[in-house]
Simulated scan of single mutants.
Amino acid sequence: MSIMKALKIGDLTAKYPIIQGGMGVGISLHSLAGAVAKAGGIGIISTAQIGFKDPEFLKAPMEANLRAIGEELKKAREIAPKGIIGFNIMVATRNYAQYVKEAVKAGADIIISGAGLPVSLPELVEGAKTKIAPIVSTAKSAMVICKMWDRKYKRIPDLLVIEGPLAGGHLGFSREDLSRYGADTKDVPHTYHQDLYDEEIRGIMKVVKQFEEKYQKHIPVAIAGGIYTRADVEHAMELGADAVQVATRFVTTEECDAPESYKQAYINAKAEDIVITQSPVGMPGRAIVNPFLEKITAMKERGEKAKINHCYQCLEHCDPANIPYCITKALSNAAEGTLNEALLFCGSNAYRADKIETVEAVVQDLVGAV
């Protein structure tokens, strides 16, 4: 089966129905996003501490981040002048509204927003051409966001992203839900209860249909989390999706912004090395076991916390006095290649990586063109 159908999001048309997932800190910046857009997909830059390399970042992190939004988009556009490029902006980001407004000002084609429900997103992009896409994981959250946007803004999402329990990084599921779907074990995805989550996806599709009928307008849906092969893409399409969002598969590409040591950690990882950990902000996250994670786990068992020397003003609900470690420091260490002091976020399929590929090769493989 060849998946050659273009993805239409309003007046935007991507040659292929492949959206590259946003990965922060510093994993999906201009190089990866530009390459995916050039290959016919949609490239997404993560705004999570996007300015971490700026000389002023330590002193004024938010200002450095806002500057970097325009700079990264400009560089991505140089790679793919006619491509579709946008940003992933977490709702949990401190000063979320300013990040969204800066992305719009920079000329983002689309903003994808999760890690909370982006209830105010429509007003932040009002009057702009920038498309907006909430990330949901349940039919309940899809109904909440669609109802709220309908009632308050008289609009619907331009795209809806459904992120399942096999995704990487912070997850929109409780530990109990992950367990129910069989997505908390070390041999995921082999024990993953896909049929159970497929039912949830069908429930989300019913919510989407309800609002499509009300507005007489199609809402494209992208399925994310655990999409690694052409078969995964085909399954998503069979469920009624218009597109897929893929992140982990793009990490081990030549063009990914991650350092080579980070990419090699994926290639070296075995299935049992990928675990669910607790983020300092209270959310479950998926990562590769390494000396840092082992140290943090041991400290937690002893009731100890790491000393936080500096706050980078990253997340809205983070209390430096009561967290086990600084997530900005742990993730920026990963992006800088200091892996033994880093949190290595990944999707459930990271262990399947066995070589470095090009973005073009990955896209062509996913759409069935090779």
Results as ranks from 00 to 15, higher is better:
Arg151Trp: 10
Arg151Pro: 03
Tyr153Gly: 06
Lys154Asp: 14
Ile156Gly: 04
Ile156Glu: 03
Asp158Trp: 10
Leu160Cys: 08
Gly164Ile: 00
Ala167Leu: 00
Gly168Gln: 04
Gly168Arg: 03
Gly168Lys: 01
Gly169Ala: 02
Leu171Gln: 06
Phe173Gly: 04
Glu176Asp: 08
Asp177His: 01
Ser179His: 08
Ser179Ile: 05
Tyr181Ser: 03
Tyr181Asn: 02
Gly182Val: 07
Asp184Ala: 13
Lys186Arg: 15
Asp187Gly: 02
Asp187Ile: 13
Asp187Glu: 11
Val188Pro: 12
Thr191Gly: 07
His193Phe: 11
Leu196Ser: 04
Leu196Asn: 06
Asp198Gly: 10
Glu200Phe: 02
Ile201Leu: 01
Ile201Gly: 06
Gly203Ile: 02
Ile204Phe: 01
Met205Arg: 07
Lys206Asn: 12
Val208Pro: 03
Lys209Ser: 12
Lys209Val: 00
Glu213Asn: 12
His218Asp: 12
Pro220Arg: 03
Pro220Cys: 06
Val221Thr: 08
Ile227Glu: 11
Tyr228Leu: 02
Arg230Val: 03
Ala231Ser: 11
Ala231Tyr: 02
Glu234Ser: 08
Leu239Tyr: 13
Ala241Met: 06
Ala241Tyr: 10
Asp242Val: 01
Ala243Ile: 14
Val244Arg: 05
Val244Pro: 00
Val244Glu: 04
Val246Trp: 01
Ala247Asn: 08
Thr248Gly: 10
Arg249Ala: 14
Cys256Lys: 09
Asp257Ile: 05
Asp257Leu: 07
Lys263Ala: 07
Tyr266Gln: 03
Ile267Asn: 03
Asn268Asp: 14
Ala269Leu: 10
Ala271Met: 12
Asp273Tyr: 00
Ile276Glu: 05
Ile276Asp: 08
Ser279Leu: 10
Gly282Pro: 10
Gly285Ala: 01
Gly285Glu: 00
Arg286Lys: 11
